[in-house]
Every structure is written in structure tokens, then in C-alpha cells.
Amino acid sequence: MTLSQQALARAATNENSGANDTILEIRGLKTYFFLERGVVKAVDGVDVAVGRRKTLGVVGESGCGKSVTFRSVMRLIQSPPGKIVEGEILLHRKDGATVDIVKLDPRSRQLRDIRGAEIAMIFQEPMTSLNPLHPVGRQISESVLLHQNMSRPAAMERAEEMLNRVHIADPDRRVSEYPHQLSGGMRQRVMIALALSCNPSILIADEPTTALDVTVQAQILDLMRELQDDFDSAIVLITHNLGVVSQMADHVAVMYMGRVVEYAPVYDIFHRPKHPYTIGLLNSVPVLGRKENNRLVPITGMVPSPMDDIRGCAFAERCPEAMQICWEQSPEFKEHEPGHSAACWLHD
């Protein structure tokens, strides 16, 4: 199955699911790092929304700000040097209220109630994301005890149940084992169990399969999809693997140099991409069975330094279709077709 066919199949299942409201809206988010050698504008005006029970794929090359954007949502940016300088992150909470996460104190009770219970996160490195000194069951129950009114034994039982839900064999034995006794895939399953143990409404997965080998990758993705249905969570899938996005995502945000340059339903991204960067990304993915003379087309040039002050469009110098205006003015990120936004002068 090619990427676009997968995207089509994914789009078809969406039609039936209904319920189109958003759970998380990021508006004009800017997260800068104030370093001695200059200001790094890691996230420089990101607008994106996550739909309830939907999966948002966030793609872009290393350093484009995709992780920083969603670490800002969790307020996990280390400060100093990092700081959210502008923007709003609106979370529609379980109790119906809407909070702007940017306005919360990172040490406040309110934010701690959101972390783990409403937004949970899993990371790229399953080898290091668990504490080596505690049994995995205790690490899961720690989160359960924090957010749910449960006794210690009940929380341990919950941990065991979660291990069972992520298809770890012998959960009653594994619950008291330490991370170094588990394989990489199993640790990532434990991380998923930990993240979902308090029924969060959003699961942020920061390159969850990058460090795993391919067969394990597929299992982990299957597991995430299965649990998304069971737990009614929205998933934010941060990755640079377009194949994963086409299998998993409902919507895709393509990021470049700290900004979202294109946002659309997954089908449109693969079939009617608008931004030359998105087109470049799609052209640089190998497709099984493609003719030999149909060579991969890389995107030329290098990513500019995020410390540079760029006039105009950040992609202009690598863009095959750059026009005069691209060098002078930065294009606005706006909706060109219903549900399909891009930041590119070509479509104005």
C-alpha cells in the first residue's frame, strides 16, 4: 500500500466518526531560548488545533520546533533559558472549563493536575524514560495515586491492569520488575501504560517509535490506535516518518523553522499538498515499486540557523518556486480551502 492509499483509507474512517470539536488550540505560540550566543526562536508563531479523539500528525525535520511546541503545552521547557514569549494554549478540560496553559505557573497545582491526568506524554527513548531504580509497577501507580483517589494496593492493581492492556505478558510478574529487565519495545509499552493510566484526553507521543526496530514500531502503533479507541484520547504524534503519519493521523501539521507551514486533513496533505516544503518532503520519501529512473528528489540547501533574522519566507532560499515577494515578506498562515491552511505566496 502506498502512502497516499493509506491516507485515503484513514480519511474514509474519519467520515464516520463525527464529533468535530477541538480539545486543544494553540494560537500564535512563540517559545524562544535565550542563550549566550543569541536568541533561538525554536517556536515562532505556531497555530494548530487538536480535535477530540482525533490524531494530529506533526512532521518536519529535526530542529523545526515540533517537540518544543508540545513540550510547551506540557510546560516542560526548562526555564531559563527557554521561555514562552507569546501566544495562547487553550485546553478544554474534562470538567468543561477552558484554561490558557501559558498563563499558568509551571509549579502550580492547576498545571500539575493537567499533567498526567489530562495531557500525558511518551518519549522517543524508551531506554531512558523510566527511572532505573523503581519497579515499573510503582512508576505507573505513582501517577495513579497522584490523580485518582485510590489506595496503594488499588493503584498497584490498576498498574497491573494497564500492563495487561498494553499486551505485556505476565503482568503480575512484570509489575515488580525493573526497567533494565525489559526490552525496548516492552519499555515503550510500559510508557504507554503509564501515560494512559489516568485516562488523559490528550496523549502526546514524541517520536514514540524512532528508537525501536521496524516490527516493534508497527506493534506499538497498532497498540496506540487500539487504545485510542478504548480510552477516547486525542493523540498528537510527533514524527519525521511520513509513513507513520499516513497510517495514524487524521490531520497533519507540517512544520518548518518554528512555524506550521501547512495544516490539512491527512488525505489532502498526501494528494493536494500546497506548500512547496510539503511537496519536497513527499518527493524525498522512497516508495516501494516506483520505477528506477524515478529518482528521489531531495530538498536542496540547508535549514537556516534559527538564530538568523530571516526576512520573508524562511523556506525561500530552498524553494524551487520562490518569487520576488517570498524574499521580502513572510507569507501569512491562512486557510486557502476549508480545513486546509498553508503559509505560502503561491496560493494568494
Binding site: M74, L76, R107, R112, D113, I114, R115, G116, A117, A120, M121, F123, E125, T128, S129, L130, N131, P132, L133, H134, E142, S143, L146, H147, M191, L194
Partner: peptide
């Protein structure tokens, strides 16, 4: 700076709990 400390923070532990239970013993 270790990943598991970020995990501990993302669970919603207070900074004191993150230090006492996770960072200091390691």
C-alpha cells in the same frame, strides 16, 4: 537532564517529589 525526570514531571509530580523520589536517589 535525564529523560526519566521529564517523565516524572509530566506525571504531575511536584518539583520536590521529582527531586526526592527520582533525581536524588540516582
Amino acid at each position: 537532564n535525564a529523560q526519566y525526570v521529564t517523565t516524572a514531571r509530566s506525571k504531575g509530580l511536584t518539583e520536590g517529589q521529582v527531586m526526592r523520589r527520582h533525581a536524588v536517589p540516582n
